[in-house]
Nucleic acid binder design. Structure first.
Length: 206
DNA sequence: CATAGGATCGCCT
DNA sequence: GGCGATCCTATGT
C-alpha cells in the first residue's frame, strides 16, 4: 500500500458534520455554532486539526461584504452557489489562501470564513508548514494562517466537506455558553458601507 | 488588453 | 501604528 493511500484515523467519538448541518438557513447562527468544532485536513496521509476559535458569516446576495452580493457570479465565486458543505477557498492579497464553508441550499451563496484555530492534531506538521519552531500565542490566528497551518490551498476550492476525505469538520461534543462567544463587526470590510457594522464575527473569549 | 484593489501578515519603527 | 509583499480577480475600454 502506498503512503498516499493511508486512510485518516480519528478519535472514535468525533462526529463528522453531515450535510444537514450546513444546509440550514441561518448562516449567522451557523457561524456561531462552528466555534469549538474541529477543522480537519488529511493530505497524503498527514492529519492536522484544530478547534475553530473565530468565524465570520457572509450572508449572500443581500450582504455588501459578501463576494456574492447582488447575485454576482464569476469563476472565483461560482463555488459559493454550491450546496452547503462545500469548501470555498480563494487567494487574498496575492499571498493568503482563505478558507470558507459554503452554507444553505444550492444557489443560495452563504459562506463562513474561518479566521482562527487552536492546534489539536499534527502540531509538528503545522509548525513545518508555517516555518515555526513552537506554537506561539498567535499561532493559528488569522484566516491566512489557518490555511497555511492546515495545508489548505486554492486548489481545494469546490471540494465537498462531506464526501471527500481531505477536508471536513467534526464535533467532539465541545460546546460553549453564549457568554463565552463574543460577536462584533467583521474585519477588513470597510467597503461594505452599513453592512460593515453587522455583528457577524464570532470569537471565543477565553 | 490594462489596471486598480483586496474577507492579510509580519516586520519595522 | 505603518507599510511592503505579491498576484488574482473584477471591471472597464
Amino acid at each position: 500500500m502506498s503512503y498516499e493511500q493511508q486512510p485518516c484515523t480519528l478519535p472514535s467519538h468525533w462526529q463528522i458534520l453531515p450535510a444537514a448541518f450546513y444546509e440550514r438557513e441561518d448562516v449567522v447562527q451557523l457561524a456561531r455554532e462552528l466555534i469549538g468544532k474541529i477543522l480537519v485536513t488529511c493530505f497524503d496521509g498527514v492529519v492536522t486539526a484544530g478547534y475553530i476559535t473565530e468565524t465570520e458569516a457572509y450572508e449572500g446576495v443581500t450582504d455588501r461584504a459578501c463576494h456574492a452580493w447582488n447575485g454576482r457570479r464569476s469563476n472565483r465565486t461560482e463555488v459559493m452557489y454550491s450546496p452547503g458543505g462545500t469548501a470555498y477557498v480563494y487567494l487574498c492579497y496575492g499571498i493568503h489562501h482563505l478558507f470558507n464553508v459554503v452554507t444553505n441550499k444550492k444557489d443560495i451563496p452563504h459562506a463562513i470564513l474561518i479566521r482562527g484555530i487552536t492546534p489539536l492534531v499534527g502540531v509538528e506538521h503545522m509548525l513545518a508548514r508555517t516555518g515555526k519552531t513552537k506554537v506561539s500565542q498567535t499561532f493559528g490566528s488569522g484566516p491566512g494562517n489557518v490555511s497555511k497551518a492546515l495545508g489548505i490551498h486554492t486548489r481545494h476550492t469546490g471540494q465537498s466537506l462531506i464526501n471527500t476525505p481531505e477536508i471536513f469538520i467534526a464535533s467532539d461534543g465541545t460546546s460553549y455558553p453564549e457568554e463565552a462567544i463574543v460577536a462584533g463587526p467583521r474585519i477588513g470590510v470597510d467597503y461594505a458601507g452599513e453592512d460593515a457594522k453587522l455583528p457577524y464575527r464570532f470569537l471565543l473569549s477565553l
